[in-house]
Design a protein around this nucleic acid. Structure first.
Lengths: 141, 141
DNA sequence: CTAGTTGCAAATCATTTGCACTTGC
DNA sequence: GCAAGTGCAAATGATTTGCAACTAG
């Protein structure tokens, strides 16, 4: 049984072709952050007959069973990322759109402190750094 | 000369009715974070004949002269906030939508560290905590 | 068999844009 | 007066939804 099948089963989702294909794409992609459109184009390229609406529906379901996480970067559209191992935050290059990931436990701790100081029960957070990546520095010169 | 007029002048923008009115609303609002729609409704309520398109155009201009900051929370639309005094981040209540502000220098320092470790020149960041606010805790009980 | 899923087209929502008209300086 | 700004309606782009056909279990 392919790993995607198991993951879907574990999440309590019916095993359907679109779900398996989309999961495969997200897991095998070099880029970890994909828009619905990105995935749709990939599917077309692979000769699959899957509608864009289905891609959105599947991604939304994946999100609600915690298979993927949806991000709202400063781009005007959402990007989706598989929830692999550990939690991490993002550095986005404002020039080329590259996305790096990082984790800093000190920051996480401080966030919890801040939330409790304000009387909030923390359910999640989003930390995005924006800047110019090493590659783009080079290009400028 | 009303303060809004001066602020617009300083920003190098022509003094027009829509700009002054929108600035007034943003400065006097109890909520610091307003969507274009929010502002538009306020204007209508005040009997102003200002189009939604103009609201968007003005907000975009305000953003480019650093009078306001645009945020992309997890809501599917942007919210705008006047850039008053100091920089701060946000805690958003996932139940009632309340938005609190905070600033934690330790977190800021770590962010700069992380960026430089990854070879990025930091141009900005966005940190949003999501949780349940004190009021909503009470409501549940 | 049959509830859940999909494809397609049409609908919706936030935001932007074209253009003729108006206004600030 | 004239360039910049505005209102309105139409265009756009991302995402959602209605519905009839299809498929996994």
């Amino acid at each position: 049984m392919p790993s995607e099948t198991k993951e879907l089963k574990d999440a309590g989702l019916k095993i359907t072709l679109p779900r398996v294909k989309i999961l495969q794409i997200m897991e095998s992609s070099v880029k970890h952050h994909l828009s619905a459109e990105d995935i749709y184009k990939q599917l077309l390229g692979n000769g699959e007959e899957i509608g864009l609406a289905t891609v959105y529906r599947v991604l939304t379901q994946f999100e609600s069973v915690n298979l993927v996480q949806r991000h709202f970067f400063e781009e005007g559209h959402s990007v989706f990322e598989i929830k692999r191992a550990g939690h991490h935050d993002h550095i986005v290059c404002v020039k080329c759109g590259a996305i790096d990931e990082f984790h800093n436990e000190e920051i996480e701790v401080r966030q919890r402190e801040v939330a409790s100081q304000h009387g909030y029960t923390l359910t999640g957070h989003q930390l995005n750094l924006y800047g110019v990546c090493p590659n783009c520095h080079v290009d400028v010169g």
